[in-house]
Simulated scan of single mutants.
Amino acid sequence: MSEAFAFVEVDWAGRTVCIEHRWIAPERTTAPLIVFLHEGLGSLAMWKDFPQRLCDAALCRGLVYSRPGYGRSTPRAAQEAWGLDFMHQQAHVVLPAFLHAVGIDPVAQAPWLLGHSDGASIALLYAAQFAQAIAGAIVVAPHILVEELSLTSIAAARTAYLETDLRQRLAKYHDDPDSAFWGWNNIWLHPPFREWSIEAEIEAIRCPLLAAQGMDDEYGTLEQIHGIARRVPQTELLELSDCGHSPHRDQAERLIAAASAFITQQTGDKP
């Protein structure tokens, strides 16, 4: 069973931020740990029951959290704009600080990372930077470069936020929906961000890697995961038909089956 969410404090960018998190099946003390990294508009709550279902299928522990700016974690400061390196900051600074704050030594007990969208890119950046501090990664609808399709859909999301009930719907999952939405939307649509790419950096990844994407993804083409496979030879690909940008919602059973089999394949039958 999952524990109720809790908070820890970390120092980031010159201030203290609180990060909400929840453990899944902490009683499986010797089992692999999966850390879940949400999408650009996501949060702990927006995963719904997917982390629990995957952890049960794979007999793993889980740790789900909301990055600063999202969910019940500390919102963005007023007028704070994220930089072109915002995903690097999350991978190289915030995630390691968060793991330390909750008592995880990732070298002694290397976690698995499962990330979706921006969270998947963060997982890739962490894996490239901290080769000795990760057991493996599952990246779902990752971004390794900026495509016109992505920008078109993100611009459409801006219109929806301004003109429809999207803000009210996001308010169910974020204490400050403006913090979550504009932090993500403004940087992705910032003209210099068109040149953003992590294609070269991910070549340093050495851990087992499963890259999954829906074939109807409205935020990226299959070139995103094919590009990963060309640069990280051990990558296994999962292309999901009848599936958009959120495989954990559109094709949850297929993703859970593939992800749990991949983890078991890498870890054996250890409980």
Rank of each mutant, 00 (worst) to 15 (best):
A133T: 04
C243Q: 03
S197N: 07
S2D: 11
E239Y: 05
S260C: 08
A258P: 04
I263W: 04
D217V: 09
A81D: 12
S246C: 14
T264P: 06
A200N: 13
W112T: 02
W182Y: 15
L95C: 10
Q90V: 05
A131D: 12
L210Q: 02
Q251F: 04
A211P: 00
L151A: 06
F36D: 02
Y219G: 00
A229I: 12
A120M: 05
R231Y: 08
Q213T: 13
H174I: 10
R72G: 11
A97V: 09
R249Y: 14
E9G: 10
L54V: 00
L54D: 00
T264D: 11
D85R: 04
P192C: 05
F98T: 00
E203F: 10
E39L: 07
G83E: 10
G103M: 08
I104F: 06
A156K: 12
I202P: 00
C18W: 13
I154E: 04
A110M: 11
R76L: 15
R76G: 13
A81I: 12
H100D: 13
A180Q: 01
P191K: 07
A123P: 01
A160Q: 14
W12Q: 05
M87V: 02
S43E: 04
D105T: 10
T267S: 13
G40F: 04
D11F: 11
L113K: 03
S197G: 07
L162W: 03
W184H: 11
